[in-house]
Each structure stands twice: as C-alpha cells, then as structure tokens.
Design a protein around this nucleic acid. Sequence first.
RNA 1: UCCUCCAUAGCUCAGUUGGUUAGAGCGGUUGACUGUUAAUCAAUAGGUCCCUGGUUCGAGUCCAGGUGGGGGAGCCA
Length: 509
Amino acid sequence: MSLKQGIRIADLAEHKGQSVTLQGWITFRRDSKGIVFAGLRDGSGFAQVVVAEDRVSPEAYQTAQSLQLENAVRLHGTVVHNERMNEMELEVTDLELLHAGAEYPITRKAHGVEFLMDHRHLWLRQPKQWAMMRVRNRLVYAIHRFFQERGFMQLDPPLFTANAVEGTTTLFETDFYGEPAYLSQSGQLYGEALAMAHGLIYTFGPTFRAEKSKTRRHLSEFWMIEPEMAFYDLDDNMDLIEEFIVFIVRDMLEGCAKELELLERDTTMLEKVSKGFPRLSYDEAVAIIRGEQAVDGRKSLDVLAEDLKAVEEEIAANEKDIAEREAAIAAGGMKKGAVNFNRNKIDQLIARNKELAERASNIPQWMESARNFQHGEDFGGSDETVLTRLFDKPVMVYRWPAAIKAFYMKRDPEFPDYVKGVDLLAPEGYGEIVGGAEREDDLDLLLARIKAHDLPQEAFEWYLDLRRYGTVPHAGFGLGLERLVTWLSGTHHIREAIPFPRAYGRLKP
RNA sequence: UCCUCCAUAGCUCAGUUGGUUAGAGCGGUUGACUGUUAAUCAAUAGGUCCCUGGUUCGAGUCCAGGUGGGGGAGCCA
C-alpha cells in the first residue's frame, strides 16, 4: 500500500536498493561525529534512518542534528540492509522537517500508570501500545471472518435500553427525552429476537457497566461479541465456543508474530490452544478446586504449594543478584554506562520481586479460599486461577447452580437445580472470557424465573413474545473483546487493550 | 460499598530519631566523539515537597481532614 507520497516502512524490504520517500515521526536520535541515527515510525512499523554528513546538504544535516522526539519529517534516501541489526534502514539523502513541535513528554524510560493514562492519546504511539492495537484489530477482523464464513449475520442491538438485562449489575442512567434510559449492559435479549428472525446472528458493540470496580479485569465501557444461534443446545454452543477460540488464536499467532514479539509475549501456552478443551461440570470443577479430585494425578493444593516454593526461590535468587550488583557499583571503578545498566537491572529485579512477593502472599490465601470453597457459590478470581492452573488449555465449566446465574438460562431437565450455562476460563490467570448458555425456551418457566428474580414483567413482554410465537431451543454466548486482547497479548491490565479506556475514575482523555 | 498502599524536578525515584542552602538517574540545553542499539564523556538549567489545618523553637518528614491515584474484595465479560 503506497501513500500519496512515498512508501510505508512495512514495505521497505520490497524497495531494497531503491531511492524512496518516507514520512513519519522521530522515535529517537543519537549522533556521533558526522553521523546521525534516528528512529522513524509511520504507523506501519519502525525503522532506523541514518544521516551521514557527507551525503546531505549542510542545512539538512543541521536539521538532522536538531531532531527531537515526535518531530514530523519527510525523508528521501536509499533503502539498505543493516547487517548488524538485520533490519532494513534508510540512508538519507535529503530531509524536510514538517513539524518541530514542543518537547515530547513520553520518553523511552519508565513511566507511571497515572502519567501514561493521562497521556493515553500520546501513549498510543509507543511500540507496545501500537502492537496491542494491531492485535486488537487482527482479532476483530478474525471474529468477523469466523462468523461471516459460517453464515452468521452481524446485527446491532440498541444501546439505549429501558431496563436491565440482568437485574443485579449497576447501570448508567441517562435522560431519554425526559424518560430514564440506561446504557446497554448486554445486547443478548435483542440478539435472541434477531436469531429468531435470521437463525444465526452475532452482535458486536459497546456495552456499559457502572460497577465501581478497580481491578485489572474491568472496564466501564467494553466491546462484546454475542452470537446467538437458533436450534443450538448447550453442547452445540460449547462446540462453537471451542471452534471459535481455536480459530482466532491460531489466526492471531499467524498474523501478529511481529506484534507479539514487541509485546514480549511468551506464546507457549497460546500454541497449545487446539480442539479438545476440558469440559467440566460445575460439580467436578468444585471438587478439583477444593483439592478433592486430581487432574492427571495432581491436586490443586499440591500444585499451589509447589508454585509457592518456586516463587520464594526466585525471590531469594533475585535478592542475591541485587546485592551483588549493588556491591559491584559501590566498589567503584565502574564506567557510567555499566553503572546505569546495573541500576536499571536492579530496578527491574526490585519490580519483579514486588510482583512475586504479592503472589507469594496471595497463594496461601488462594489455597485457603480453594480449600473452603462452598458448593453453590460463584468462582472468585483466585478459584479460576487455581482451576485453570491444572490444565494447559482453556477450560469450560458447564451446568451451573441456577441460583447464581441469570434468569434467562435454561433449566437442566435432568438436574433441576442447575442451568445449562457455560463459562470459558482462559489459562495463565486471565480468568473468565466467555459466558454463555442455552436459553430458557419455555414461557411458563421463564415467567416464574422473572418473578423469582423480582424483575418487572411488563418490561420483558416483548422478550416473552419470542416464546409465544414459534419458540425453539437456542443458545449463545458473550465474549469480552478487551479480556481476549489482554489474554492473547499477555498484558497485565485490561486498560491497555482498548484505545481510550473508560473505567471507574477514568473519563479522560 | 469495603480493605490496603501511594503522592518530592518534565519523568522514575531517594531523602536518616523532625534540624543549615532539597538529592540522583533519565529527559532538555551546550559541547566532544565517524555505526549508534534505552550509546558514551563533560558542562548546565530545572522545585508551591498534592491541598487545608494542627503539634513544634523548627515539618518534605509527625497528626487530622480533604483531593487525586495504584492494588484487591464483591460483581462480572
């Protein structure tokens, strides 16, 4: 893909030896006598450009020497292969400064969360954030391809709604011509109506939850994919979830290798994502969490105890490393560059140990919580981690106690206190990314559950009509896009998985 | 709503039992160095120590309240 003027960095290799024009922004500058090295990014990638004093005009060289972070430039030069870095770079013959601008606030050094979030509009330009957005884009495209290739229609539910889909969660209230209206927390009920019209559908849009959650897994505004399939039961639903997850993970590994490398994502666990996800009933899952049932000869509490030991050993090793580096610096005689290198290394080790110390203090709590897990409760974050730790693929948990699940889930005829719901838990501590169910298709049962959940029946009359006119078995699921991006990119916090996160305490920029 | 931690230079942080003029690295600026890889070397500018009140001869440091933020619980995708 070419620009109106010049080419893009992503296409540099195709132009080896040619004279080309690049346009972009400066990511770094280092100079030495007679030579300036600068980094350039243009949205398609990153490359180094080299300005040698004897190859350009004196004016151009002076401009090159004065380049600052995020200056906008247009460069002309020859594409060459840099043997040292094994990368394509540009030997500049001429350059124009398009905009010099002010001193750029984000540097290549460490920054705190608050500072970065306040500068999110600029942070997005940094390589890791750039890679993250590329992963997000790839996933969105793969999701559409997966469903479109299988005959699903993408149709959009309304975002203004009159009532909650699930009575419990908090809603954002707005004013709709004088009437209270709420921002949608799920498009599912509308998805069911659309499935009765089109058979196979999916919705893909923003949803809003006014939960005052400050955790790494929650956003107030997030994007959800919600397929709904007529004539599907719970097993069909689980088959589709599995096929879907395998498809998008494979596609991303194939299409985003460069991005995952920039993100320093260890892809070992992702490469194991293939058909045959473990399917556990809620009852089995509870037994495993409590340590009553082994998986491949291993019990949850034993594995956690081993993990704790490993964490403690790593902390001790890091402390020894830190002490040695500090002693070496204190001994003197070290060059400044080496001192900086060791200081940075020490900072990294301290940060790592802080993380490990948190985990070390968490694990005994997880064990305690796992041991005392009460049958009938929903899983907490730590229970999900404990369970998935025993498997090397995403885990499906199905047939949940009716009391803790939404009113619309279908009662299991063979297990009257359970519903035909399913959650998909991602490995590596990322937890729940999919929640789905076969829907209750019996009008009388649905009416009873609306009453039992204390929901206003009149608000659901249109939904009940779906059971009055040609009701059929149907099922669907919801997938949080940002949780998927967070998991696949190996990111610590969900706020980096969306361009401009909206969360409790975060409305700007 | 609850628990817990934090706020000092543009950024990341140190700052001793409360004691003279507030410290480092990075970033900026100036200069040196002909292939740098978060380059290196030298010099230099840069501060309302979050806000309000209190204790004290004296507060960046102690106390109370507030504001902003981090992590977690609950709830969820």
